[in-house]
Simulated assay, not measured.
Amino acid sequence: MQERLNVAVQKKGRLFDGSLELLKAGGISINNGKDQLKASSHNFPLDVLYLRNSDIPQYVVDGVADLGVVGENLLVENDADVEVIEKLGFSKCRLSIALPKEAPYNDISDLKGKKIATSYPVTLQKFLRERNIEAEIHVISGSVEIAPNIGLSDAICDLVSSGSTLFKNGLVEKEVILKSQAVLVKNKHLSKDKEALIEQVAFRIRTTLKARKSKYILLNAPKDKVQEISDLLPVLKAPTVLPLALEGWCSIHSVIEEDKFWEVIDQLKAAGAEGILIVPIEKIVV
């Protein structure tokens, strides 16, 4: 009987959609039903377990789940003994210390003797200890940002993405403790058969992530500018150069990371590039 992988994902919240979209993009179809705690793929030996986000690291450590999609912040907080396979690029946030906007603050020494409310006491305590800051940590779960407004704390330590929640509650971000994003993790003690399946899943995810960061670029250029323009393009290997019907001109095709395109667009135009097209890529296999 063929082995099947158990993959733990958040049952609801910001990690849920990103996890299932990534599996789907990798060609793994999940038979999802409403309020299911477990769902199976019909075209890959894989089952999805829908769990509370905070429980996922321990489920992977215990071997209940072979793989898990979880925020890096939880791995740090739980000191989870798992292996990170891939950073997934979504659900990016940061764990930060914030204070009421009217509170005086010059540097981290102003936290001495303060009461800080948080759902991440282990990470916060380590951060403060490394900086020789003595502060009182008040552990609460949920609605941390309201703590200073009701006199429960002087400051908070919580996850921040856009910062809008802090703004609405009159708080200002002062210290970033760590940056986090969704990561794919695995149990460290798996059979060879499961390791082989995981490598297949990881390969599919990597091709999808590579494509998301890259674009296909097509442009026209004078033949005598081909080398100069090619040198400007960060590519996988080398660009494809095709002759145009117009004498003395070529079409250059390549793959470029989207953020790097904006760094070189002016240089490409100055070198003689015309008719520049940027096209999305579905998959990249390297």
Rank of each mutant, 00 (worst) to 15 (best):
V122Q: 10
E228F: 06
K168Q: 12
L20W: 05
N187Q: 06
Y59P: 03
I284V: 15
H138F: 12
V185A: 07
A80W: 02
K186R: 15
I28A: 01
D154C: 00
Q227T: 12
H253V: 08
D158N: 09
D259K: 12
V235R: 05
V60A: 03
S180C: 09
L46E: 02
N132L: 09
S180P: 09
A98G: 06
D79A: 14
I140A: 15
K260V: 04
L190N: 08
R4L: 11
H42T: 13
L75F: 06
N78H: 12
K38Q: 13
K24N: 08
S91P: 00
F127C: 01
V226T: 11
E21Q: 13
A221G: 09
K188M: 07
N43R: 02
R94K: 15
I156N: 08
S109F: 10
D231H: 10
E83Y: 03
E282N: 08
L49Y: 14
L75I: 15
F44M: 02
G89C: 08
L88N: 00
I56F: 00
V69G: 04
L209P: 04
K38V: 08
L75T: 07
E258I: 06
Y216A: 05
N43A: 04
R212W: 08
I156L: 09
L88M: 06
N32K: 13
K179N: 10
F127Q: 04
A238T: 09
V176C: 02
K237H: 13
D35H: 07
Y216N: 06
E173K: 11
L242Y: 13
E258K: 12
S41E: 05
S161H: 10
I140M: 13
P100H: 06
L242K: 12
R4Q: 14
V122D: 02
K38E: 14
L178I: 15
L23A: 04
P121E: 01
A270M: 02
E282Q: 10
V144L: 09
G248M: 03
P104R: 11
V122M: 07
W249N: 03
K12F: 14
P222R: 13
